[in-house]
Design a protein around this nucleic acid. Structure first.
Lengths: 252, 252
DNA sequence: CGCTGGTTTGAAGGTCGTCAAGAAGGGTGG
DNA sequence: CCACCCTTCTTGACGACCTTCAAACCAGCG
């Protein structure tokens, strides 16, 4: 087939092969797209809700506000990511989600997730895998914020975004588009924007990576991985790499 | 009925009413208990695995090691908690789990989770709810570590443990048993044990709470909640509070 | 009674936050 | 095309929170 694959399909294909019925089932989920401006709150902390979303295009941020006016960004969402899936079984959303750029999203009733597990076990498992992977990212962020220096956190985030964008085909050999402000970076890394700026300069001056004009460029990939102690395995890409599942994609 | 309820049953009852068939189904999961010494690694980061566990008795910690020898504790596990559920769909465990005390656990194949969703939707949803709730805790920990001061983090953790133990009936009016060392507290809060000690003294001297001899005592509950900006809603207890589910526990 | 792991305390230093102010970039309207 | 605005970025000085290092102290346990 050519490449009418959506980012979501490309991502889930990292977990398991999707048959045509699975694909049309996903196409139904992603069916009715809505276009959103930047800064639109898709999900609001504390509200009850009935829908989950797929982010088809654009960037979003999942965050929690803290009483003193600050916020902690839990994760950035890129095309192919679900919005609101993480807590679809809680009665009220424990977080908010806001678009960072113009974006298109598809809405679906959250019960569909459990239906999927019942009716199309393979696809349902793939969706829950996406959920588990997202949670693994949150855990990794907690480790970074709790136990690593500012430069390590920042380098790690850039490498994570690189890896996530790569599987949906949104990276170039020399870097990728990244419409995140330093303020947002700070809120994600548990730092102030000012300190993020200082650390970005350090990265630039050490020749490892640059982040300017909404574009990240990674110059010394191995050295950056080393600095960040980055190990992709938590993202659970590449099923073919697992010796435990030798035949998983044999029919590819 | 009297009180042969396991901690897991008590916890899940916070989400939905469980019928006798659900209960016997859970009893089957919790069937074959194993007794473990403190310091036993139940799950090891990076390993492939086929089983999840229920912690029936005792305490455990879920953590990730960092290269420099330190570790970040993701969450503490108390009776009624699942171990390894969080990443059961990932090919390798993204974290380790270790017992902090003598403990009893039950083992079950991780596929059982998806079976449950298919065969007993109500119970399956309850298990996934427990998963979502656990993830909400991780998110909250990230917020605390990223955006709150040491004393706020510590107070928040004590209040979270209090709330979690309360629903399984493991609290006394004046406090609760808590076999966590200051070292472990530090690893959970992104602090050093030394600083944890200083903050514990602050809490003690302000008359809000004490933590000594493996026992937490909360003296000024409202003031402590205020200090920690603690809001239980992320734990999603008390279904009866939701207007959206008015009849959920009517038959109680 | 001495060992071991955990706790407590002090002093000094580093990372990062706060405050303040200026420069650059992107969009809008004249 | 330029002036203007607003957001974002950039840089410096100073201080606070937390870490590191070092050393007692305590409690449980053999």
């Amino acid at each position: 087939m050519p490449d009418p694959e959506t980012p979501l399909v490309r991502k889930l294909a990292c977990y398991t092969a999707l048959d045509p019925a699975d694909r049309s089932c996903l196409a139904a989920l992603e069916g009715s797209e809505v276009r959103l401006e930047p800064g639109i709150e898709v999900i609001t902390q504390g509200m009850h809700r009935r829908y989950c979303y797929v982010l088809n295009e654009g960037w979003a941020a999942c965050y929690k506000l803290v009483d003193d006016g600050g916020r902690q960004i839990i994760n950035f969402s890129v095309p192919g990511d679900f919005l609101g899936l993480r807590s679809f079984l809680l009665r009220t959303a424990d977080h908010s989600v806001v678009t960072l750029t113009e974006a298109t999203v598809s809405q679906f009733p959250q019960e569909r997730v459990l239906d999927l597990v019942r009716e199309r076990p393979n696809l349902g498992a793939a969706v829950l895998w996406a959920l588990a992977r997202e949670e693994a990212m949150v855990v990794q962020h907690l480790v970074n914020v709790g136990r690593r220096s500012a430069i390590e956190r920042l380098a790690h985030l850039l490498l994570e975004l690189q890896a996530r964008l790569a599987i949906i085909g949104r990276t170039a050999p020399d870097g990728f588009h990244c419409p995140i402000t330093q303020d947002e970076l700070g809120d994600a890394l548990g730092l102030t924007a000012i300190h993020v700026n200082r650390i970005l300069r350090q990265l630039r001056e050490s020749g490892l990576a640059t982040f300017a004009r909404r574009r990240v460029e990674i110059h010394g990939y191995p050295a950056l991985c080393d600095l960040a102690a980055f190990n992709v395995s938590y993202l659970d890409h590449h099923p073919q790499g697992m010796t435990e599942f030798p035949d998983e994609r044999a029919a590819d």
